[in-house]
Amino acid sequence: MKRLVTVGVDGSPESRAAAVWGAREASLREVPLKLVHVIDWPGGPAVPRLGRETADRWADEALAEALEDVRRQYPHLEKTTRHLSGRPAAALAVEAADAGLLVLGSRGLGSLVAYLVGSVGMATLVATETPVVLVRVADEPGDAEPTRYDEMIVGVDIHEAPDNVLAFAFEEAIRRDCALRVIHGWKVPPAYRGLPFIDSDGEREVDRSVARMLDELLLPWRHRFPSVSVTQKAFKGSASRRLVQAAAGADLVVGGRHLRRSPLGAHLGPVTHAVLHHASAPMAVSAHA
């Protein structure tokens, strides 16, 4: 059975941009699109003091607006809508179980190069193993269709098990017929800094070793996807900073997250967390194997 692309909508410009982005993705995948609105009912902060009838009407309007945006640009795409009640993150995670991708909107913080991934988005990210894409709203309301830059960026940690992340990235590159740039940043552990054997020659040797490990990691994926143009860079420094810079000219940025749950909340990892809040391109987050 074909797997859906599911989009969470709430009537905001961010979610409407996510709906159009999700429609584009569903068209690339040749699968149906499902638009889902979840009312945090009863008594949730999203609808304070609203009656059920008013809340239902609000949900229907949000779905109708997003559906109309999609129809204008993708008239032949198979589309469905669903209106649910419950805790949004939990409900969206359940909907994502039958989907190949879940798409949500992300809000910009004014003129700052930063974005707000709300509590629902963060909670949903770690409540599902389905890949999630956070979409930025366009600067101009009429510019909802994402610009195609013909390059995707993926950040990998060679010390993790990034098979799911790389599979997602290479498959998306095939769908878009675009190049893929792989980035890995490394740092000298704090406990080793200042030791005499960690000099410039030692750092160069570590850099060569990390580059070889990245080569070995990517080799089977190059064989599996020979048509994808791949460039790679292992470097000493902040991976999150390099990924954010690269996102300015990318169609999509891909990162990973850990499956384990922390008792203090979601464990996204510092790189993914930073890129989610600062990258200008849409970002896909896939759980590590």
Score class of each variant (00 low, 15 high):
residue 120 V to S: 12
residue 37 H to M: 01
residue 193 R to Q: 09
residue 269 G to E: 05
residue 68 E to D: 14
residue 184 H to N: 04
residue 6 T to Q: 05
residue 42 P to H: 07
residue 233 K to H: 07
residue 67 L to F: 05
residue 3 R to W: 03
residue 123 A to D: 08
residue 194 G to P: 05
residue 112 L to C: 10
residue 242 R to W: 06
residue 171 E to D: 04
residue 166 L to M: 00
residue 93 A to W: 04
residue 284 A to Q: 05
residue 173 A to S: 06
residue 223 H to C: 10
residue 30 E to L: 12
residue 139 D to C: 08
residue 115 Y to L: 15
residue 115 Y to Q: 11
residue 288 H to D: 09
residue 48 P to A: 02
residue 80 T to S: 13
residue 251 D to W: 00
residue 76 H to L: 13
residue 242 R to D: 06
residue 261 R to L: 14
residue 64 A to D: 04
residue 205 E to R: 12
residue 149 Y to N: 13
residue 33 L to C: 13
residue 35 L to T: 09
residue 250 A to V: 05
residue 75 P to R: 12
residue 230 V to R: 07
residue 41 W to Y: 11
residue 180 L to K: 00
residue 255 G to E: 00
residue 194 G to L: 03
residue 10 D to K: 10
residue 132 V to N: 06
residue 168 F to N: 00
residue 92 L to V: 12
residue 227 S to L: 10
residue 97 A to D: 15
residue 255 G to A: 04
residue 104 L to H: 11
residue 82 R to I: 03
residue 33 L to R: 06
residue 46 A to N: 10
residue 18 A to F: 11
residue 144 A to Y: 14
residue 210 V to S: 12
residue 288 H to K: 06
residue 72 R to A: 15
residue 44 G to L: 02
residue 181 R to W: 10
residue 96 A to D: 09
residue 59 A to I: 09
residue 261 R to Q: 11
residue 287 A to K: 06
residue 160 E to C: 13
residue 58 W to Q: 13
residue 92 L to D: 14
residue 124 T to Y: 15
residue 17 A to F: 08
residue 179 A to E: 02
residue 128 T to G: 08
residue 56 D to T: 11
residue 48 P to R: 05
residue 32 P to F: 14
residue 73 Q to P: 01
residue 176 R to A: 08
residue 214 L to M: 00
residue 64 A to Q: 08
residue 97 A to P: 09
residue 65 E to V: 14
residue 190 P to R: 08
residue 13 P to N: 09
residue 68 E to A: 10
residue 152 M to D: 10
residue 166 L to Y: 02
residue 182 V to F: 06
residue 194 G to V: 05
residue 278 H to C: 08
residue 5 V to W: 05
residue 75 P to Y: 01
residue 27 S to F: 07
residue 257 R to S: 03
residue 172 E to W: 05
residue 106 S to G: 15
residue 4 L to D: 07
residue 203 E to T: 14
residue 239 A to W: 00
residue 45 P to R: 08
residue 288 H to L: 14
residue 196 P to K: 02
residue 229 S to L: 12
residue 256 G to Q: 04
residue 41 W to F: 13
residue 285 V to P: 01
residue 256 G to P: 02
residue 92 L to W: 14
residue 87 R to K: 15
residue 188 V to C: 07
residue 74 Y to W: 15
residue 245 Q to R: 14
residue 53 E to H: 14
residue 205 E to V: 08
residue 94 V to M: 10
residue 81 T to S: 09
residue 164 N to D: 06
residue 139 D to L: 02
residue 146 P to Q: 03
residue 84 L to T: 13
residue 151 E to R: 06
residue 247 A to L: 01
residue 227 S to W: 08
residue 97 A to K: 14
residue 44 G to H: 05
residue 136 R to Q: 08
residue 95 E to R: 07
residue 30 E to M: 14
residue 159 H to G: 11
residue 29 R to N: 01
residue 72 R to S: 04
residue 221 W to E: 01
residue 281 A to S: 02
residue 269 G to T: 13
residue 274 A to P: 01
residue 134 L to R: 08
residue 106 S to L: 13
residue 277 H to W: 00
residue 13 P to A: 04
residue 33 L to H: 04
residue 87 R to D: 15
residue 258 H to E: 12
residue 201 D to C: 03
